[in-house]
């Protein structure tokens, strides 16, 4: 058990080192990127979406977790191929690689979280004990990212089109989730389609806590719990089905 933990820890340390190797600003990028996007959206959209109160805070609360989603899926689905040389020569359970990758992204988020909280308070966020709810939401979010990434990553080992496809789908999901605008501007009869997107409910939950300063509704909890469960089962199932061919296809 402790051997496994040490392996995962070392893989996470490796990924963190690789991520910021030869970059001058290092982990600061995980803060700069959302800030740049926030500034752009503020400039482009704040007049269009004038109804949204405190647009900066609204968009930042979405962007931070969107970046987590986007980075985690992209990095994790590539983790099998990225670590191909190790998988082929050292006997380590293969699912450790996506696991380490998700943990790496979470660590990155946690490091940038304190400065982000200060910034969000600057934009008018008020401290509340509701924030503790971020822990279960983030846990469910990570499970969903892990399951989805393992599913995509295993397919990607066999068909490299998957990662290219995902790069195309990613921005579309960004506008469907929605991060830059509120569902309130969508005509009521079309809202149901936005709500069909499972991601919507995670971002809703994050925003309930950080933007509306409220507790997410029971429905939201049920949706995200189910989605995470389905994603995890999907990842697990794909992994079991496709594992035997992975060495000869990496």
């Amino acid at each position: 058990m402790s051997r496994n933990r040490s392996i995962i820890k070392n893989l996470v340390v490796k990924e963190l080192k690789l991520k910021y190797k030869q970059s001058m600003l290092g982990f600061l990028w995980s803060m700069i990127t959302p800030l740049v996007f926030m500034a752009i959206f503020n400039f482009v959209f704040s007049l269009a979406f004038m109804d949204i109160e405190n647009y900066s805070l609204f968009v930042l609360t979405g962007l931070i977790f969107w970046q987590l989603f986007s980075n985690t899926t992209n990095q994790t689905m590539q983790s099998f191929i990225r670590n191909g040389a190790i998988i082929k020569t050292i006997q380590i359970p293969i699912h450790f690689f996506p696991l380490a990758s998700v943990i790496t992204e979470l660590v990155g988020l946690l490091i940038s979280f304190v400065p982000f909280m200060i910034l969000m308070m600057f934009f008018g966020l008020e401290f509340s004990w509701h924030f503790i709810l971020l822990i279960p939401i983030l846990a469910l979010f990570s499970v969903m990212c892990y399951g989805l990434s393992v599913f995509l990553g295993m397919l990607n080992v066999y068909l490299r089109d998957i990662s290219i496809l995902w790069n195309t789908v990613n921005p579309a999901l960004f506008y469907l989730s929605p991060i830059a605008y509120s569902i309130a501007i969508i005509p009521p009869e079309y809202r149901v389609y936005i709500k069909l997107n499972p991601l919507y409910h995670y971002f809703q939950a994050f925003r309930d806590v950080l933007y509306s300063n409220s507790i997410p509704e029971l429905n939201t909890w049920i949706y995200i719990s189910l989605t995470s469960l389905v994603a995890w089962v999907l990842g697990k199932w794909t992994f079991v089905k496709l594992e035997k061919g992975i060495i000869s296809n990496i």
Partner: peptide, 26 residues
């Protein structure tokens, strides 16, 4: 296992970092 030249060596890391990484992976 010595199954390939440079097995598991991470090119972007230093030699020293690789020693620590690979011994712990093994």
């Amino acid at each position: 296992p010595m199954l390939a030249i440079g097995a598991g060596i991470e090119m972007e890391l230093t030699g020293l970092e690789n020693i620590k990484l690979i011994t712990s992976l093994m």
